[in-house]
Write a protein that binds this DNA or RNA. Sequence first.
DNA 1: CTGAAAGCGCTTACAG
DNA 2: CTGAAAGCGCTTACAG
Lengths: 346, 346
Amino acid sequence: MGRTRSALRLVDVADRAGVSLATASRALSGRDGVSEEVADRVREIARELGYVANLHARTLAGGATSTVGLIVHEIDDPYFSEIAGGVVRLAGEQGLMVQICHSGRDPEFELHEIRSLIAHRVGVIIVAGSGYTDPKVQAAAKAELARFQEAGGRVAVIGRHSVTADAVLPDNEEGGAAVAEHLLSLGHRKIVVVAGPQRLTTIADRLAGVARALDAQGMSIDAVPVLHTDFTRNGGAEAAEKILDQVAGTTAILALNDAMAIGVLSTLRSRGVSVPGQISVAGFDDVSVAADLAPSLTTVRLPMAQMGEQVLTMALRPSSTRPRRKSTGHELIVRDSTGPARTRRG
Amino acid sequence: MGRTRSALRLVDVADRAGVSLATASRALSGRDGVSEEVADRVREIARELGYVANLHARTLAGGATSTVGLIVHEIDDPYFSEIAGGVVRLAGEQGLMVQICHSGRDPEFELHEIRSLIAHRVGVIIVAGSGYTDPKVQAAAKAELARFQEAGGRVAVIGRHSVTADAVLPDNEEGGAAVAEHLLSLGHRKIVVVAGPQRLTTIADRLAGVARALDAQGMSIDAVPVLHTDFTRNGGAEAAEKILDQVAGTTAILALNDAMAIGVLSTLRSRGVSVPGQISVAGFDDVSVAADLAPSLTTVRLPMAQMGEQVLTMALRPSSTRPRRKSTGHELIVRDSTGPARTRRG
DNA sequence: CTGAAAGCGCTTACAG
DNA sequence: CTGAAAGCGCTTACAG
């Protein structure tokens, strides 16, 4: 992109007001050490002229940064767009800008985006996407973020990441246990779990919760088929095809996010399987459309928009000696997509 | 936010490599005028040290800006998150960052966000939200954007806006006509239109298309109830309540976006009205979940992600004497939510 | 091919 | 309370 030709500068405003650069600067940044009268005149003139400060110059000169970097796996995934909504809304209220980048669930690319945000000298970096179970995968990113923090940058993450930073922790394990218990309590024993990539901590934690609930029933997760596909609508749709073709007797499908559950429902519908009559389906997240599906989706609610606000709020507070952690809580939302397990015969 | 303490600077790299600042700068920006050998050494050292250039300094010194501003009404609305997905993805490939802000469908706030983007010296501003039918409402924003363009900034918009700029034009009128014709061809004559705020050009254009289709049937839009509520799921749900309570004999509801259609479907379901048995429902946009609703939603497809890529592509090309305009095309997607009008008796 | 120097537009000690 | 000056970290003519 080309460069923008010189717009109005602060000197122009200062000249017009008949004051020095320094005074004009103080007046506009609301710093004291200027008489109210002069400050008002400068501000008035700045407004008249339509002056807007060059934030690059301001930041370079030592002013505070006013932009926050937000890394999501994919902004067009409702889980992330709802989180981003919370972040952007709060940022707007605080006069901050937010730079969004995709990691595309690729650690390499995520590292690249982190570097890019650092180059842009954002004051805050928020990592909203899931962490990875293998610390090695994120070692470089972790080092980069740690260095950023040492230099005074603030980092806050959503989920379990290897980097030491303030964190909003979705109730993944508890939620996984809750929804699994729900299915078990309905009498389901032939449950298939439709999961995203094994390397994500989000998946690992939700699965751990499911395992715990099964344990409590004297069942083992090892006896339950877990299909790992894309953590998306299409991943869910594919998994459901596989289940219908290969896993006889399934009475319930537990998808580890709503996107996958939507794909599952779609496949079941097109294959003529009634939900929950023949197979119950549950999801995770409670994206806003979950309530409007037919049948409406039983799921675990995570307060995404609020999580976005919380993670930014944390990042905006000065860093503490020990990183802050905040659990989101969760709520099992029982809707129409789950029902009693059908009995084998009769 | 506080400031970030000094990270590695270009001089550090230059010193380490035993070259001048100028040479180091040339080497890293890939400009020629440096021997390959020296350039390689500098790059190698920069990599080793983990150097990342300060983009504020770079931009201030006259380098090109590498960030694009994107204004959406609301990022957690699937229409916008899909557009944003296209923009962010392409930007990532091009090594650009994107700053997202909400306008919240408030022209005042939109103006504020535009000013903010300009202060950040973005090279490009993309306005993805609908324009306003009353030019006065956006006069200030228009002036601000025009000034930005005169100063060398690039502007591209989605939809009909009063500012003179490159534009991606959604096929709103044609799409409105197509979906209305579809309902008419199914025999519907008692159609109610569920629309968003009248002041948006998106609404005006879609309505104009509907009016044209009605005209062709010798019907007038004036004889068709048009309910203006929020352009959201809840707006649609409320409108549907009103229709069921107050507009007897309705056989089809045409919602002017999918979010509203989802709200309409939800209300009809909870009120026990069968779709399309008793009432047909159609939407507009084809957000990704539209195909997965039950009944799946008849709608007009707009290629949102592609629109995002196109609008950024336009913005990245040098400005032309006459603004470029590109129609999106549209496609009527007939699914299960629309069917023949029920006959009055028997 | 390489370097010394000016300049981008601000902010902030330092004097007064 | 106000101003002159240095400096933030780069890029880019201008010399050599």
